[in-house]
Every structure is written in structure tokens, then in C-alpha cells.
Nucleic acid binder design. Structure first.
Length: 416
DNA sequence: TCTGGGGTCCTAGGACCC
DNA sequence: TCTGGGGTCCTAGGACCC
């Protein structure tokens, strides 16, 4: 038996931890630059405000119902998430942290699912203030569905037995099934398949012809067969991507150089954290796609390193070379990003024929010290000269809450 | 009139997830 | 005026090999 634990309206709930006055009031969390809605409290969901809608389209309703808006505060959400996952892992060993607010938990050792689920949710709420719900079923896909019903019934817990599959799957819209996205839904609708039960009855060959093997796994799981395992070991990233939209468009090459340098530096820091070296780097800049009707708005190129690296300055240097190639003067850019790829583990690194080992070791030590300083004294304590000193023009977060749990300066003061 | 068979590797693009 | 960010996996097709 597999349980899916899901934090209810996670980002909105995080904002409420230190603002209990907002409990049962409408709360929205916005994307970077306060652009789109990325999390909604139940009150907001009931108003019919959809996920991903741009803020400017709902301004009237926001004013009318006095919805509380927040800029996204990922250091807060990440920290709360870590605490929740620790609580779960303390109790149960076989856990897959699936996303910032979800975990698959092996429940097969338990006889009384409801008892264990309820006590876990109770503990999480007591220790962190985050409300959660748990769905239990035969496999991952079905536990997602059970969780869906837990939320729908406001019961926080739901168990689906294999004998009840027909009943519940028939009530499950095809587009709400895990693994069925917009394109697949459209295709299935065109073929008169509307709910999860319909899908589970389809012929294997037909599924394989129109979907990938993952589609077939989903269908088998709907039939109650276990196909997708719990992955308890956190996997090493295969790509590291950093990109941002800007609050103001820019034509300034120098500004873009600073932005790309900063992204390259941050990405290489992540790379070092997971003990990897990258062999390729991909840089892109975009003009405003909502304003560009005639031509291409996406400019990018990819380049390879002679020898895999996680050296800040090499990665920055290469990224700026690419920027120089793709930059077109006169264009007004709205977004930029970099992706590091083709990783090798630092332990399995093959020394190149022309590598200067002594130099490499010195750089390695330098990077280590660089990271140690930033870890000890806070990120951005030191950075390379080509990076931005401040990025105030770049990202707009006017409604940012304090980082209550991760910054000394933001810690809560209690007056007695 | 007419051009084999069997394989690997890489990449771009498309699907999905949160 | 104002539209996010960061991932994974699979497949088709091209290039190349013998």
C-alpha cells in the first residue's frame, strides 16, 4: 500500500504560519515579478480563480474580496518543506520526496492506514502548522487519486481499495489523472474517453501506439497493478537550469552580461553541491513573447567544455562567449537563462590529456573555499567581479514576506 | 531497370510533472 | 502597463559504423 501525503495549498499555508490572522481569509501567492497566480487558499479556489492566471486579469476581484497577495518566498517554503520531510522520515524509512509539497510513503507495514495517516498529519500540523492530506491505495497513481478524493471530501484522509476501483475511477476526470496532461486529455476526449475508468479499459496495444511506455504504466496502475516504484534515494540532477523574467525589459548588453554571470555562478554552485562536473552549457535570451508577433523571440546556443568542469570562472567565461554570439543589438530582452548539462560525477572524472593537474587542484581548492565562505556567512557574501552587485531592476517582489526561518534579520520578534 | 541489413549514438522536440 | 521557474523521460530521425 502506498500513501501520498500532500500539503494543502502549500505556499499559501506557509504564508499563514506566521500570519495566523490570515487563516480562513483568501490568500494568493504569486510567481516571480508578481506575474501569475501559483498558489491559492481554498477561499480563493472557491472564487473560481485558476492556477497560472496573470494577476492583472483578476485585479478587480482581488480588490473586491480583499485577497491577500504574497510574492513567492522560496527560502521560506523550502525550509518548511525540509522540516515536514524530516518528520515523515523520522517515523517511516521508505519515503520518496516527490516534490516540495508531496511525498509517497510505503504504508504496507501498517494494518490500520487511517490511524497512522491521521497521527502523521496531526504531528506535522502540530510541529509546523501546515495542514496536509493523505490518500492510500495500491500504487502511486491510485494514491494520487485517493488524495484527490481526500481533498474533495474535506476529510484529509481517503483510502481506495482495489475492489472499489470501478466506482471511484468512473468519477475521476481523465485530465486529473497523474501522467495525463493537456495533450493526452485532448486526444482521449477526441476518442470518447472521458474518465479514468474508461481509460483503464483500453487495449494495451492501442495505448502503446498512442502513448509512450509511461502511458501504459499509468493504465496498468489504474487497473490496480503496481508498476512505478518508490524512489527513496534522492536522484542526482541531470540538468541545472536558472532563468528569470525581468521586471523591465532591457537592451543593455552589459546588464545581460551581469545577469548571465550571476546565473552561471549560481548554477555552478548547485553543481558543486551535488559533486558533479558539467560538460555542456546552454545560454538563452528571450524578447517579450507576448509582444512579438512576427519573428523569433528566442535566441540560444549551446557549447561544450574541453574537459568537464564545475569551476565558476570557466563556466562564466563560456556563458559570456555564448551570450556574445546570440545577442542582437536593438532587441529588448525580457528573459534570460542558462542550463548546465551532460554531467559526470566528480569521482569518475577522466583526466584530459592536456589538463594541467596542478592548476586544476588549485582551482578546486579555491572553489571549495568560495563555497565555504558563502555557506558560513550567507550566500552572496563573495561573488565574482562580473556578477551583478544588486538586481533591483531585475525581479520585482513587492509583496514579499520575511524569511522567518532562514534569515537572522527576519526572525520574528515577540513583545510581551 | 536499378541501390542491403543490422546496429549504435546523439539530438531536437514533445510529452509530462510540481 | 502587467503573463514563472525548474525539472524528467521518451521517441523519431539523422549520422555514422560494418
Amino acid at each position: 500500500m502506498i500513501a501520498l501525503l500532500d500539503c494543502n495549498n502549500f505556499y499559501a499555508s506557509c504564508e499563514r504560519i506566521f500570519r495566523p490572522d490570515l487563516i480562513s481569509k483568501p490568500v494568493i501567492v504569486l510567481s516571480n515579478n508578481d506575474g501569475c497566480v501559483i498558489a491559492r487558499s481554498n477561499e480563493v479556489k472557491k472564487m473560481g480563480i485558476n492556477m497560472g492566471i496573470p494577476l492583472y486579469k483578476i485585479e478587480k476581484i482581488v480588490r473586491q474580496y480583499q485577497i491577500n497577495l504574497f510574492s513567492s518566498n522560496f527560502s521560506l517554503y523550502g525550509d518548511i518543506s525540509n522540516r515536514i520531510m524530516e518528520i515523515i522520515k523520522n517515523d517511516i524509512s521508505n519515503v520518496e520526496i516527490y516534490s516540495i509539497d508531496e511525498a509517497f510513503i510505503d504504508f504496507s507495514q501498517f494494518a490500520n492506514y487511517k490511524f497512522h495517516a491521521t497521527s502523521l498529519m496531526h504531528k506535522i500540523y502540530k510541529w509546523t502548522g501546515i495542514p496536509t492530506s493523505i490518500g492510500v491505495a495500491q500504487n502511486k497513481t491510485l494514491s494520487k487519486i485517493a488524495n484527490f478524493f481526500a481533498k474533495q471530501n474535506n476529510s484529509n484522509f481517503f483510502h481506495i481499495d482495489n475492489s472499489e476501483l470501478k466506482f471511484y475511477l468512473s468519477k475521476m476526470n481523465i485530465s486529473d489523472v497523474w501522467g495525463i496532461g493537456r495533450q493526452y486529455s485532448k486526444f482521449l476526449h477526441n476518442n470518447h474517453i472521458y474518465n479514468a475508468y474508461d481509460l483503464s479499459k483500453q487495449d494495451d496495444k492501442w495505448i502503446l501506439d498512442h502513448f509512450s511506455v509511461n502511458g501504459l504504466k499509468t493504465v496498468h496502475e489504474l487497473r490496480g497493478i503496481k508498476c512505478i516504484d518508490i524512489v527513496t534515494e534522492p536522484s542526482v540532477r541531470k540538468n541545472i537550469r536558472i532563468s528569470r523574467s525581468f521586471s523591465e525589459e532591457t537592451t543593455d548588453y552589459f546588464k545581460l552580461q551581469q545577469v548571465i554571470s550571476t546565473f552561471a555562478s549560481k548554477a555552478s554552485e548547485k553543481l558543486r553541491k551535488q559533486n558533479s562536473l558539467c560538460s555542456s552549457i546552454h545560454v538563452f535570451i528571450k524578447t517579450n513573447k507576448f509582444k512579438t508577433f512576427h519573428e523569433n523571440y528566442y535566441y540560444s546556443d549551446k557549447s561544450y567544455f574541453d574537459s568537464p568542469t564545475n569551476d565558476n570562472s570557466l563556466i562564466i567565461k563560456k556563458s559570456l562567449e555564448i551570450l556574445n554570439k546570440i545577442f542582437i543589438p536593438g532587441n529588448s530582452y525580457k528573459q534570460a537563462g542558462i542550463v548546465l548539462g551532460n554531467f559526470v560525477s566528480i569521482d569518475q572524472f577522466q583526466i584530459g590529456l592536456f589538463d594541467n593537474l596542478k592548476q586544476k587542484n588549485r582551482r578546486y581548492k579555491l572553489m571549495k573555499t568560495f563555497d565555504e565562505i558563502n555557506n558560513t556567512f550567507g550566500s552572496d557574501s563573495i561573488k565574482l567581479g562580473s556578477e551583478e552587485l544588486n538586481n533591483q531592476w531585475r525581479v520585482n517582489k513587492t509583496k514579499l514576506s520575511p524569511s522567518y526561518t532562514t534569515k537572522w534579520n527576519d526572525i520574528l520578534t515577540v513583545n510581551i
